[in-house]
């Protein structure tokens, strides 16, 4: 059982636990916490599957954006949940138990980074680093260039029928950006306070 399998089972268990928490709990705030857990674990699964850029986007868009939006929705519509905000002693204990190992691990890895760089980096490690990044291909595909497809398929890019299958995603990219603008204007219009 290698490291990939161990991390997969860990993250899969976290994702399933979060999803089950969303379904089982009657409390809407607990459901939001379960959603955060599930989405973060899915981001880890994306990293494991070799989709690093998507994993980062999952954290930024979902965990950073959508869930914050949902939390605002919960707070604006829930009545009695957020009246009492005092932290109890057992919550402090749990918080310190979670935060202290995290701080130790992060400090340890930050301290080890300098040693890692100064040590001789084997060529194998370097080639793995170069291979692991998929963001460049993804960005090129979004602006309409597909070097992988153009190079690998061996088709002639000048013929029109081939070009239709090789084009990147520049049209959906532009469409989705205009769509986001329209959605933002529409949401601001919908959520405004009516003055009558």
């Amino acid at each position: 059982m290698d490291a990939t399998a161990i991390f997969f089972w860990l993250l899969a268990a976290l994702a399933v636990a979060g999803a089950l928490l969303v379904v089982i709990t009657p409390h809407i705030v607990h459901a939001a916490v379960g959603l955060i857990l599930a989405l973060s674990a899915v981001a880890g699964l994306f990293f494991l599957a070799g989709a690093e850029f998507l994993g980062a986007m999952q954290i930024m868009i979902y965990v950073g954006g959508t869930v914050v939006l949902l939390a605002f929705g919960v707070m604006l519509t829930a009545r009695l949940t957020f009246v009492r905000m005092r932290t109890t002693a057992d919550q402090w204990v749990i918080a310190v138990l979670l935060a202290a190992p995290l701080a130790i691990i992060l400090l340890q890895s930050a301290w080890a980074y300098g040693h890692l760089r100064s040590a001789q980096v084997s060529s194998e490690t370097r080639s793995m680093e170069a291979e692991a990044v998929s963001a460049t291909d993804l960005g090129l595909a979004l602006v309409g260039v597909r070097p992988q497809v153009d190079g690998a398929s061996g088709l002639d890019p000048r013929s029109a029928s081939n070009r239709a299958t090789m084009d990147g995603y520049i049209l959906p990219f532009e469409l989705v950006s205009v769509h986001l603008l329209v959605v933002m204007i529409g949401a601001a219009y919908l959520a405004r306070r009516r003055t009558e």
Partner: peptide, 25 residues
């Protein structure tokens, strides 16, 4: 597949914004 997943994420963010505006209303 990665490009499709990226578009799904963007559309999900847009959907959440509009749906929450409707929910507040």
């Amino acid at each position: 597949g990665q490009v499709f997943a990226l578009f799904v994420m963007i559309l999900a963010a847009a959907e959440a914004a509009v749906a929450l505006a409707i929910a507040l209303q």
